[in-house]
Amino acid sequence: MTAAIQVNAVEKSFGNVQIIRDLNLSVAKGERHAIIGPNGAGKSTTFNLISGHIKPTSGEIRLNGEVTSGLRPFEINRRGLSRSFQVTNVFARMTVWENVRCAVLWATGHRYAFWKNTDSLPEVKQRTAQILDDIHLSHRRDVPAGLLTYAEQRELEIGITIAGGASVIMLDEPTAGMSHAETERAVALIRRLTEGRTLVIVEHDMSVVFGLADRISVLVYGHIIASGTPEEIRGNPKVKEAYLGEEVD
């Protein structure tokens, strides 16, 4: 079976600083894959590379077997990959409802249509309402996204990411800055919403990582030093030395 995401020998330099070195990563379809690593290891850069936000200096990235390195983000998105951002990246002046609805439009085939009334597209309306329900923001639907609380914005960020129904979902630190209770709720949400899809998640909270992931990759200085099941990663001496230290027993 072809992997959902396949990263082959990707390198990325900004100027003459090499951030990503010989990156190899394989995420199977339907897998929940966590990427962990210290601050500045290149996790978000890896997300940017896979989602087309930046282009690799060399190497190749495949989505469901098709080469996507070199494609623009919207082209990759149309092929079924959707990502969220570590720093909330929503449509600030638009309402919560509009934010989610815009993320639904392409996937429901309405594209650049200028001859249809958005309000009278039943499947768009239903899907938007469904997503708002899922992310617990129905009661805030008419509030401009810029006025939401931090935790609500993080939930909206997830909502926008999953709204298009992409088969591969990438979440960059979705629970960062959340309280314990909020994190628990968000993880339950992520677990439910990505059921049957492929999930790649960057997360610093180890209890979240080990509770959620089928497989874990450890990124250190732009290179994946280990990839495996939670048990394998826990027992890997290289990982212990390089990253986990005392955090995992």
């Binding site: 998105n77 959707s82 990246n89 638009m94 249509a113 958005t118 298009g164």
Partner: peptide, 20 residues
């Protein structure tokens, strides 16, 4: 229309529009 709505999205955040 869908185009009109997406125009607003482009106004607010053209970067994110590429990811939807």
């Amino acid at each position: 229309t869908p185009l009109g709505r997406i125009c607003n999205a482009v106004r607010d955040n053209p970067e994110r529009v590429e990811f939807i």
